[in-house]
Simulated assay, not measured.
Amino acid sequence: MKILAIDDQQLILLSVEKKLTELGFDIRIADNGTKGIALYDKFQPDLVIVDINMPGMSGLEVVKYIRLEKTQDTPVLVLSGNTNEHVIVDGFDLGINDYMKKPVGLNEMVARIDRILGVCSLPSPEYVSPANQMLQKYCVGIVIPCYNEEERLSSVEFQKFATENLGYHLCFVNDGSTDNTLEVLEKLRKGNEDTISIYNCEHNGGKAEAVRQGVLHLSKDPQFNYLGYLDADLSTDFRDFDELVQTLENSDFKIVSGSRISRMGANITKESARKIISKTINLIIQKILGMPFKDTQCGAKIMKSDMVSPIFEKKFLTRWLFDVEIFMRMKKFYGKDQAKDLICEQPLKRWIHADGSKLSMKDSIKIIGQLGQIAFHYKSA
C-alpha cells in the first residue's frame, strides 16, 4: 500500500519514512504542502499523513485540496503538534480520518494506520519499535563540544537517546582534539546519520568557540525550533535536559538554563574545593550581571532559534565564560528587566561531577580576572 507523508521537519519525516518502509509500505515524502499536493496527484496514495503547522501551505490547506478540489476520499491522518481545539475540529469538518498529537509513539502511529487501512502492518517482532520511541512535538538541535573526550564519551547513552527521541539531533563538535575523539565520534554516528552529525574543527578554539560554531552550523537548518548545548561527559542527565526543553515549549521564555543547586530530592555532587570556588565565582557573576542567577556555568542550556543572531553572531571574549556573556548579551539586547523575564533558571534533579574535567583549579583562579574583562567590555560596549 502507498503512503504519502508531508511534514516540514525532516527529523520527523525521515523517522516516519524509515519505519513505514521497514513495514513494507511504499512511501513518498514531501517537506512542504506544495510539494505534497504535487506528489499526491502523481503518486495517488492510499493514505496521506500530514502535519498542520507548515510554512506556506498548511496541512489543512492540503486537506482542502484533497477533499474539495480533487473531491477524493483518500484517508488522511494528521500528525501534528498543534493542540488547538478549533484547528482539530476544522480538520474533522474537512473530513480527516484521525488526528494524532505530538509527541506520539511510533507504534501508536502504526496502530492507527492499521485501523484506517484495515491492515496488519507488524509482520514480525523485529520491526516493533521500543515502546518509548517518540516523535517529538518540536525539533531540537543539541551541540555537544568535544575536546580529547575519547575516554569519557558514552556512545551507548547518546545512541539510545537519539534512537528513542525522534525530533532531537545531536551535533558533536570536535574541537581540534589530539587524541582519537574524532574516530570515536565517527563510530558513534554510524547507523544514526539522520540524528547525529559531526562538525570538525581542525584547531582547538576552546569550548566557547566550539559551541558557537556548532550552534551557527545547526541554525542553518530551518527545521530546528530550539537549539542548545550539553557537556560531552553527560554530567547533566538527558532526562533533565528534556525537562528543560519541556519548560521552553510550555512558556514564553527565550532561554532555559540548567542550575546545579544542591537541595533535598536532587542528586548534585561536586568536589568540595570546587564547590567553594564555584560559590565565590557565582557571587562575582551575580554582581556583574545585576541579575540573581545561582549558576550561570551549568553546561546545559536550551533556547529558541531566534536567539542565535543576538547571542552567537559575534565571537565570545573568553574560552570558558561564554555562559556569562550569553546573559550579558541578552541583557544588552532586551534590557535588564525584560531579560530577567525571558530567561529561566531551572534546577536539575541530577548532576554528577565527571572525572577528567578540562577546567583546573589554576583555571578557576584565572576566571576572576576574565570576569573583570567581561564586566569592562560589556559596560563600555
Score class of each variant (00 low, 15 high):
Glu151Arg: 15
Glu193Ile: 01
Val119Ala: 05
Asp98Asn: 12
Pro123Gln: 12
Gln373Pro: 03
Thr247Leu: 10
Val173Asn: 04
Lys220Glu: 02
Pro310Val: 07
Met328Ser: 08
Asp114Ala: 14
Ile311Glu: 00
Glu150Lys: 15
Thr71Asn: 14
Lys362Cys: 10
Lys294Trp: 13
Gly258Thr: 00
Glu61Ile: 01
Arg329Ile: 01
Val89Phe: 11
Leu14Tyr: 08
Asn32Ile: 00
Cys139His: 01
Asp242Tyr: 12
Ile311Cys: 02
Gly33Ile: 14
Val324Glu: 00
Val63Gln: 02
Met361Cys: 08
Asn250Glu: 03
Leu14Ser: 04
Gly81Pro: 05
Ile261Tyr: 04
Glu209Gln: 06
Met330Glu: 01
Val48His: 02
Ile365Glu: 10
Gln133Ser: 09
Asp363Gly: 06
Met109Asp: 09
Ser380His: 13
Met307Leu: 14
Ile88Ala: 09
Asn250Asp: 11
Ala5Ser: 14
Asp355Tyr: 15
Phe158Tyr: 12
Asp8Tyr: 07
Arg260Pro: 03
Gln246His: 08
Tyr65Leu: 08
Phe316Arg: 10
His169Ala: 11
Tyr147Ala: 07
Tyr147Lys: 14
Thr83Val: 10
Pro123Leu: 07
Gly118Asn: 03
Ser305Phe: 08
Asp31Cys: 12
Lys70Ser: 05
Arg115Pro: 05
Asp306Arg: 00
Lys275His: 13
Gly81Asp: 07
Asp90Asn: 12
Gly24Cys: 05
Lys362Gly: 07
Leu321Ser: 15
Asp221Tyr: 11
Leu244Glu: 01
Leu14Lys: 11
Thr195Lys: 01
His86Gly: 10
His353Ser: 15
Tyr138Arg: 15
Ser155Phe: 09
Met303Val: 08
Val128Ala: 11
Gly56Ser: 06
Lys102Ala: 08
Asn200Met: 13
Leu106Asp: 05
Leu218Ser: 04
Asp233His: 14
Ile52Cys: 07
Ser364Asn: 11
Lys270Val: 09
Leu185Thr: 05
Val128Met: 12
Gly167Gln: 04
Lys358Ala: 13
Lys314Cys: 10
Ile343Trp: 00
Gly265Pro: 04
Lys2Gly: 06
Asn225Trp: 02
Asp114Glu: 13
Thr34Gln: 09
Cys344Trp: 00
Met330Pro: 00
Asp41Val: 10
Pro75Asp: 02
Gly191Thr: 02
Lys379Tyr: 12
Phe322Gln: 06
Gln136Leu: 15
Lys220Met: 10
Lys101Ile: 15
Asp221Trp: 11
His203Gln: 11
Asp237Tyr: 15
Leu248Ala: 01
Gln223Asp: 08
Thr195Ser: 09
Ile261Gly: 08
Lys304Ser: 10
Met307Asp: 01
